[in-house]
Nucleic acid binder design. Structure first.
Length: 216
DNA sequence: ACTACGATTACCT
DNA sequence: GGTAATCGTAGTG
């Protein structure tokens, strides 16, 4: 699931369910937006200059959680590639799924779109902080990823690629992926990208049919 | 020890 | 549209 080529893993992660269980409370959301951070030739990646105390987790086994803090908030990555490489996928947005009332309380808002739209917001909603760094997603009972639930209607969806958000180097790489048209994607979708002059392109339909109930 | 800064967000006009 | 808030790292002396 997590081992192997980062860009492929990122694609596979879209549409899966990220689950957090804390003190008997389960919160979860469907992954709708991700960004890949490679090692070689990727100056935007935390691992670009080699291992440090902060980015140790990135060099651990695939499926390890890499959590870092920024601007007094937290962001969550899933480590990919063989151990020692230093690549990961940043989870940028979720469609809220389970434990919505708990997420609303943690986030201090009842607005569904604001619960998990953005990498730091979803960490707050799932109660993930630096103590979750280096968690093994494959064996953990508190944070893990599973296939999406079967719901109402089958929805065919497309993936759009774009440049990554908030970085100063490596802006030309199309390493941001999101479910096209989904209301829970961050970054003000289209207008924001165009104003910034960011690169993006529409992709072929994934061909995958998943069970996804869109938030209205 | 000190400083600058960031894979962000909330709130302002 | 713009910018202040906020704090853990990493880089420097």
């Amino acid at each position: 699931m997590f081992a192997g080529d980062t860009l492929q893993v990122a694609r596979r992660l879209l549409g899966t369910l990220l689950v957090s269980r804390r003190g008997g409370v389960t919160t979860s959301g469907i992954i709708v937006e991700v960004e890949s951070y490679l090692h070689q030739d990727d100056p935007a990646s935390h691992s670009f200059r080699g291992p440090t105390k902060r980015n140790q987790a990135m060099f651990m086994a695939a499926g390890t959680l890499y959590v870092y803090s920024i601007h007094a908030k937290f962001c969550l990555n899933v480590v990919t590639e063989p151990a020692g490489i230093g690549a990961a996928v940043l989870i940028r947005a979720l469609q809220p799924w389970c434990g919505i009332e708990t997420m609303q309380a943690r986030r201090g808002t009842t607005n569904l779109r604001e619960l998990c739209t953005g990498p730091a917001r979803l960490c707050q909603a799932l109660d993930i902080d630096l103590t979750a760094d280096k968690t093994d997603l494959v064996h953990s009972e508190s944070i893990y990823i599973q296939q999406p639930p079967r719901v109402v209607t089958d929805t065919q969806w497309q993936i759009t690629e774009s440049s990554r958000i908030g970085i100063s180097r490596g802006q030309d790489a199309l390493y941001r992926l999101f479910i096209d048209g989904h209301t829970c994607v961050s970054g003000l979708a289209r207008s924001h990208r165009q104003k910034r002059g960011w690169l993006f392109k529409e992709c072929e339909a994934s061909g995958t049919t998943i069970m996804l109930r869109f938030v209205a």
